[in-house]
Amino acid sequence: MTSRTESQRQQGPDRSLSRVKVAIAVTDDARNQIDQVAAACRRLGLEHTSTLAGVGVLLGSVELGDLPKLRSLPRVAAVEIKREARVCALHGQSR
């Protein structure tokens, strides 16, 4: 039987709709094992793009439906969908 993740990966256009960028914080005691945590996340569908070892965070993308599985992984402290950030300025003008 094809897993949900695998089937969605094969579905082309639908994939972009259900796939979200995520940031994953590992637990404090797992920061020196972040590569192992990353491997476990990849097995659950994480498309891993980068590791921020200094602050214990993994970046990547995942199917929306796979988020609960990632969140329940041991040594994962938090998983959040990345959002857009923008500056907090009203306006600027040349002086």
Partner: peptide, 9 residues
């Protein structure tokens, strides 16, 4: 002047 959390992190 916009970006994602990933870049900020």
């Amino acid at each position: 002047a916009s970006g994602t959390d990933g870049n900020v992190l």
